[in-house]
Amino acid sequence: MKIIKKLALGLGVAAAAQMTQAADSGFDLATVNPEADRVALQNYFESRFPQSEISDYVNGIYAVDASSREQWEELEEFPPYEFAVEEGETLFNTPFANGKGYADCFENGGVGIRQNYPYWNKEAGTVKTLEMEINECREANGEKPLKWAKGDIAKISAYMAWTSRDKPINIEIPSDDPRAKAAYLDGKKFFYAKRGQLNLSCANCHVQGANIRIRADLPSPQLGHTSHFPVFRSKWGELGTLHRRYKGCHKDSRSKPLSHQVEVYRNLEFFQSYMNNGLVVNGPGARK
């Protein structure tokens, strides 16, 4: 573990030297630099929580809060999502009425590909999420789309994440289509803009407010946020998708949340997932 940390630090420093940008840039399409953002975010958390390994941020709040970590490790001994993954596998392998299946819609038969989602789809001119393509696959084969928040879609997504465990997250922002960068910037802006009756941005809680008690809760660092979705939340008593979580958190600023899979939520997922490049997929996860 020590070696990894040193290595990561060394890489971080080397990258930082290349990637540092002026404090007043990165906020418009001309200057936004996703790689510089990613390095800056890692550096920020490295100095906030010097005792935490960067690779451990996929474990959310438990990466930085030792007191709740023990409880969580006990929870993970008998993972509450275990049955859901098995059900997801069954659903994934059950053919549609036309005889085709999910495996026909995805690269590599849908196995071990979670780390590439969400991605910029040039033909459609939009960010595609895994859940979106699960439903598109159904519709293309004459099946009704699934409800977005939980249930079968979360189980199928959980199984697909399971087959991708430990693969490094690899979000690409193709340079041959400026709309991809614009989508990234839109997601970044959403994350940092204050909103709602409480005038809070995502960053207020998950960057500046990470591991600082806000009412009864400890918000996790945003680094690592998407790696373990869908998640089994004890509070929900079941699996839920990332956009279900987005809606809940959006509401926490006392805003009216948007709908599942709207463009700006997908752009937000694109931005957040890019921040996690190099960390590994560890979905599905379990959280309090």
Binding site: Q21, A23, G26, F27, D37, A40, L41, N43, Y44, K188, K189, Y192, A193, K194, R195, G196, Q197, N199, S201, A203, N204, V207, Q208
Partner: peptide
């Protein structure tokens, strides 16, 4: 009106909490 004002404020100030 406050929500609209927030949006206008965000246009020029959203970057203030981005780590550099």
């Amino acid at each position: 009106r406050m929500g609209i004002q927030q949006h206008a404020y965000a246009q020029s100030n959203w970057h203030l909490s981005v780590p550099q």
